[in-house]
Nucleic acid binder design. Structure first.
Length: 428
RNA sequence: GGGGAGUUGGCAGAGCGGUCAAAUGCGGUGGACUGUAAAUCCACUGGGGCAACCCACCUAGGUUCGAAUCCUAGACUCCCCA
């Protein structure tokens, strides 16, 4: 990167590794110097929570606000009804409108922790707020997509799109090359997303759309459309698509996706995810996911040998603090130290509470392992036991048929799967 | 509208009447080595059940002593022609 930005925002993006590509570095940079730039990122409501894969976008919005600009979080209430086909091998199952609304409610919760939306009264404010402050805006594209009239839309918007060009986008090419079907419904997604950008520019003066590099095509479409319809020049900026250094997709743990909502991924598990970062990723992640000064990130990343573990603890603490608060981070760290350094138990371990009713005459150890989340199925639990990977209070379980009664559970027991995954079981 | 090909475990992809829960690769889990790292090596890896055992190769029927494999109908996908 030879470009030297004048704006704080661009400087941070470049320094910290957020920048994959930008449609026009210089003009965007100048706009950022001149005044408050409203910028948006869209989030589709395909699940009740976002996961760490979206954290990089959230951090971009946070930096945007920190450097004096206005973040707009756009919920895809309308677009989720269509489903983004970009770089996907198959069609997503269609979600019901109710499910989408419920997902949006879940997703919204997390943003309040990262962005300042101002007072309730300001939150839904319209154009009035724009340019006057940099309070974040929470919007939903269902607002303008739900009521669209098909023919009007085709005539006003559709005429600006060339199917030839749409087919040439990398995001759908692989799908077509693999001879997988791409429904007309999905094919329209990029038009709707482009229209979002147009509407956000028209209504809120939004100048910039950000997103992962998989969104490049969709973003560029919005820029082109806005130029044609409104003759406004607006910008796009993408972040690299993150994989860990060992080539895996960002954000998976043994229990699946690492969610940002606390009720779907406990702070302790969240903390563990970061604590287990691969050595090679520590520096990169510190810059992207924490707000520690660059020099500090680099110092920590340079630690040698087992000392990088200290850097990983800092990383876990910082990221967990942003997402769940300082208290939760401290509790997670305390539990981790207790469990891993002393081989004991900690309050923050995933805990399964059973009522006397549930136990009845006794409950099998296999069931306990499954219900505490250490195995996905009974078969898996039994396999674990057979391979000596399952432990109860640190003693290997040898008997898969073991049944525990209420008396055996009168004091909490610790179940372990391997060396790293632990859970507590106790009476409610 | 007509013709052809296909649908197999988390994914990719073999199998084409019994020895098939089903090759192989990826992914995942456990173990060894370590630093709660990476790389490497070893093992395991469809589901339910404490177990006996049961369910399972798109769906529903059928033929067979016996079907993922054959037949019929249906659903979905891809290709070619109009």
């Amino acid at each position: 990167m030879t470009y030297h930005p004048k704006s704080d925002f661009m400087r941070v993006m470049i320094e910290r590794g957020f920048l994959a590509d930008c449609t026009d570095y210089q003009s965007l940079d100048e706009a950022l110097v001149e005044g408050v730039v409203p910028a948006y990122i869209g989030f589709d409501a395909t699940a009740k929570s976002l996961h760490v894969g979206s954290l990089i976008q959230i951090m971009m919005l946070r930096w945007l606000q920190k450097t004096g600009h206005q973040p707009i979080t756009l919920m895809g209430g309308g677009t989720t009804k269509v489903g983004d086909p970009s770089f996907r091998a198959d069609e997503r199952p269609l979600l019901t409108p109710e499910a989408i609304d419920a997902n949006i409610d879940g997703i919204k919760q997390v943003f309040a922790k990262y962005l300042d939306y101002g007072d309730e009264t300001n939150r839904s404010s319209s154009s009035e707020a724009v340019g006057q402050n940099n309070k974040a805006l929470m919007l939903n594209n269902a607002e303008w997509l739900d009521g669209l009239n098909y023919l009007d839309f085709l005539r006003d918007i559709g005429r600006h799109f060339s199917v030839n060009r749409m087919l040439s986008f990398e995001s759908v090419k692989s799908r077509l090359d693999r001879e997988q079907s791409l429904s007309f419904l999905e094919f329209n997604y990029m038009i709707l997303q482009a229209y979002d950008f147009l509407e956000l520019n028209r209504r809120y003066g939004c100048l910039l759309q950000m997103g992962g590099s998989d969104q490049w095509g969709n973003i560029v479409n919005g820029i082109d459309l806005t130029r044609r319809v409104l003759d406004h020049e607006i910008y796009g900026l993408t972040s690299p698509l993150l994989t860990t250094s060992d080539g895996k997709k960002m954000g998976k743990s043994q229990n699946g996706a690492v969610w940002l909502n606390g009720d779907m991924c406990a702070p302790y598990e969240f903390w563990q995810f970061w604590r287990n970062t691969t050595d090679a990723d520590v520096g990169r992640f510190l810059k992207l996911y924490t707000e520690l000064p660059i020099e500090e990130c680099e110092r920590l990343a340079a630690l040698e040998g087992s000392e990088v573990n200290d850097a990983k603890i800092v990383l876990a603490n910082e990221v967990t603090t942003l997402c769940h608060g300082a208290e939760a981070a401290a509790a997670a760290e305390a539990t981790a130290r207790e469990v891993f350094e002393k081989g004991g138990v900690g309050d923050d371990l995933p805990t399964l509470e059973l009522t006397a009713d549930e136990i009845g005459d006794g409950i099998s150890i296999v069931q306990l392992i499954v219900r505490s989340g250490l195995a996905k199925s009974g078969k898996e639990a039994k396999r674990l036991i057979a391979e000596n990977g399952a432990k109860m209070d640190d003693a290997p379980l040898s008997e898969a048929g073991l049944v525990l009664d209420a008396a055996a559970l009168s004091t909490p027991i610790k179940l372990s799967a391997g060396k790293k995954r632990h859970a507590l079981v106790k009476l409610a």
